[in-house]
Amino acid sequence: MYKDSLTYIYKNDKEIKGDLNKALQREINLARNIQSSLLNGKTPTFDGGEVCGASLPARLIGGDYYDFYPLVNGKIRIVIGDVMGKGIPAAMLMILTRGAFRSAAESTQSPGETLTAMNQAIYNDLKTLKSFVTLFCADWDPNTSTLTYANAGHNPPLYINGKSNSIEELPKIKGIMVGGLPNQVYKEQSVELNDEDTVFFYTDGIVEAINKDGEQYKLDRLISTLEQNKEKVVGDIERAVMESINKFTAGVPQKDDITMVLLKISKQKADITSLNSPVFS
């Protein structure tokens, strides 16, 4: 077989491209593992209720975010968010958002203050990158049974009343997405939660999940699934919602990440006893 110098270079280019693809794939997998580890960190446990969260990226890695931060006063701060865009760029901004939340949660007194501090911290970066993040932040106080929350352009969570079994959105509170305008002050709203009440925080990837006919999962299906599973513990409700979405989408690749966080109140009341908090008194 005749080989000239060009043939040799061509084969080398193919090999180089193959190596680059392998390296890229390896790095994407590492990035996915990092993101997955950060997202699926320790979930706080506390008497008087339970929380859990889950996130399913539409691509290898995603731009959705949720987190829990136990506070020294016994409260637990919950955040859920959706970074504009998809894939690796969104994932990079999700890490930026996580850092801003962790830093703000420690130094601020309330969910509104946390969102204000986060916007101050990352507004310029998001503006430069022509991006934004919608965030919903809430403090659960097991001592007063109060959920206080603030919203930065995110869809309102669903409130499942344990007594009447009704499911409705939490009372709306307006706030501009983080990265939208500088110097924002985020207003707060509070609701009292009773035994067996559940709050379902989520990103729009759930209601906008599509099936093979291009139909969306929509809020009605989500509410119906929650109605059928509301008696269960949070982990089982989470699995039921994921199963319902998977059944509906039937393997159709999704365009958006799917993320949810659940908070369910139970009869016992006590202080948060868990993890992640820097100091406990």
Binding site: D82, V83, M84, G85, K86, K130, S131, F132, T134, G180, D204, E208, K255, D256
Partner: peptide
């Protein structure tokens, strides 16, 4: 018929 966060982003670009 449908707009997602990236679509909102492009409107933000128009605002800027």
């Amino acid at each position: 018929e449908f707009i997602d966060s990236t679509g909102i982003g492009s409107i933000m670009n128009a605002i800027h």
